[in-house]
């Protein structure tokens, strides 16, 4: 049990000393996961709303696909991105394997289905309420989408946070496509995996404490925005 105590002491020391290695790792984690979340929101929110608002052939199949893809195993997504970005793969010329960009791509693929699938459900529920009104007003498709997304924005914020949670917590995809290279592609989760494999369990758990603190801060910030804007 004393490992748990040690973990908190380790975490406290790492934060208090403003450990430069740690600052870089935390910065990269935030940069990769927040960028992936932003891209996912830009793609997933309109996509989910469109699937909910418009009737088109194959709509149910798309819904089923999005719902299933929410459970994509990170390690499988990592492997697919790895094979595509490898020098021997179709996009090998770009030389993106083992870079933060590759990690962003993998995480975006992981989160887009989550954002899109949950957005679809929320917007669909909203349509029950607003559908008639929008039809009466005769708004165009783009305006309809924006109105719906805007009306649902606080629920959508929770979805985006769920996406961030998934991105910042996953290790399978970033380990494979990033390669866990020191100071280049090493993020919080891959550091935890590395320290575990070195047998330094208190340090690994300490990093886990910091990662959760970070996640808490992001969620807290979102909650603050929500409260102030609502008031």
């Amino acid at each position: 049990m004393h490992e748990f105590g040690l973990a908190f002491v380790t975490a406290f020391h790492l934060i208090a000393d403003f450990d430069p290695g740690l600052v870089g790792i935390v910065g990269l984690s935030l940069r990769v996961s927040l960028t992936a979340v932003l891209l996912s929101a830009l793609i997933g929110l309109p996509l989910g709303a469109a699937v909910a608002a418009f009737r088109f052939p194959g709509r149910r199949a798309v819904t089923l696909f999005l719902n299933t893809a929410m459970g994509l195993p990170p390690v499988v997504v990592g492997l697919i991105v790895y094979l595509i970005l490898s020098r021997s793969g179709p996009l090998g010329v770009l030389g993106l394997l083992f870079t933060p960009t590759a990690m962003i791509v993998a995480q975006t693929l992981l989160i887009v289905p989550i954002v899109a699938a949950l957005t679809r459900q929320i917007v669909e529920d909203l349509l029950v309420e607003y559908g008639d009104l929008l039809r009466v007003m005769g708004t165009g498709p783009v305006t309809t989408l924006f109105t719906l997304l805007s009306e649902a924005r606080w629920s959508l914020l929770t979805i985006v946070l769920a996406g961030f949670g998934r991105a910042s917590a996953e290790v399978g995809a970033v380990m494979i496509v990033g390669g866990n290279i020191d100071r280049v592609t090493r993020v919080m989760t891959t550091s935890i995996a590395l320290e575990t494999s070195k047998g330094d369990l208190p340090l690994a758990l300490g990093l886990g404490v910091i990662l959760m603190t970070l996640s808490l801060s992001v969620n807290f910030a979102a909650a603050m925005v929500r409260e102030t804007r609502r008031a």
Partner: peptide, 24 residues
Amino acid sequence: LRRSFVLGCAAAAALLLGSVQPTT
């Protein structure tokens, strides 16, 4: 509401793109 949503998105985008820079 729509405007504030779009503004929020734009602000988040600017913030993130600004932070994207080569690691080394």
